[in-house]
């Protein structure tokens, strides 16, 4: 038995690793994509290769960058607002139990309604332009950041604070060396979810009430049925959101492994 096993060729290490799984998955996606093209034709879906070529052309064109810049700046401002005020509000609601208990069902309700229904109100408030985009993006992203931060603060084990007090640590050092690291993994998860939702919110806002940005170009292309533009922009968005999310998820796992 053992002699037989010794003779059997071992799988090379690249076959066993995560890289191999990813490669198989990517190949399957490409295969399905190509299949969808063959089935639906050029009017429904461009080929993977065609999309890549058009994406390269888009990236080289002068018209693309102002729109990308517009989307990116609205998104980043919205993200900063969602993250900073989300953490602040979440921390207050976490430390002040009663406020947290009152706010939680309201927040969960807002979290679960489609925010598009609030879009007319946002538009009336901020008008067409970057202000509405930022507001709509931040509205999407802030809720998960608040909820995760609030729960992170609530779930700090009291014994951590007691232990710190016994070691005569209080005030700012207590915050920096105990409260902050104790809540970091959960807060980070909130930021990761907030990142994705803020991007969705910003793009939605550009699609429905804007004259610039990737969302706007996408909507225009849909009106003109320009499959090349639709596919290459979608590909770019997926590539951007996907790779950032892989990175954030890796950090998230690292933080949670210790907790």
């Amino acid at each position: 038995m053992s002699a037989l096993e010794a003779q059997r060729p071992r799988a090379p290490s690249w076959l066993a690793g995560r890289g191999f799984d990813t490669a198989v998955f990517a190949a399957l996606v490409l295969l399905l994509w190509q299949g969808a093209h063959l089935w639906g034709g050029e009017v429904a879906m461009t080929t993977p290769l065609g999309t890549l070529l058009f994406t390269a052309k888009t990236l080289a064109s002068a018209e693309f960058w102002p729109h990308a810049y517009a989307t990116l700046s609205a998104f980043l401002i919205a993200l900063v607002i969602a993250a900073s005020s989300g953490i602040l509000i979440g921390a207050v609601l976490g430390f002040h139990r009663l406020s947290g208990e009152v706010a939680e069902p309201v927040l969960v309700a807002i979290y679960s309604i489609p925010k598009v229904t609030l879009y007319p109100i946002i538009l009336l408030f901020f008008g067409i332009g970057i202000a509405a985009e930022v507001a709509f993006g931040a509205l999407h992203g802030i809720i998960p950041v608040i909820l995760f931060t609030m729960n992170a603060v609530r779930n700090i084990k009291p014994v951590y604070i007691k232990s710190a007090r016994v070691m005569r640590v209080s005030g700012w050092p207590l915050f920096r060396t105990v409260l902050l690291p104790a809540t970091l993994p959960e807060v980070f998860t909130g930021l990761r979810v907030g990142f994705s939702l803020t991007l969705i919110g910003t793009l939605l806002s550009e699609m429905f009430g804007s004259k610039r940005g990737i969302g706007f170009v996408l909507m225009q292309a849909i009106g003109l049925h320009n499959m090349d533009v639709i596919m290459s922009l979608t590909f770019l968005l997926v590539a951007f959101a996907g790779s950032v999310n892989v990175l954030l998820l890796a950090i998230d796992h690292r933080l949670h492994r210790r907790a």
């Binding site: 084990k157 014994v159 951590y160 007691k162 232990s163 070691m167 005569r168 640590v169 050092p173 060396t177 105990v178 690291p181 104790a182 970091l184 210790r258 907790a259």
Partner: peptide, 22 residues
């Protein structure tokens, strides 16, 4: 304390050094 009070974000040696460093 009865509850596990070791800080999960610190290694064993950093946990033990915590009070001294502070």
């Amino acid at each position: 304390f009865q509850d596990d009070a070791s800080f999960p974000w610190l290694t064993v040696e950093d946990n033990i050094a915590f009070g001294l460093r502070r």
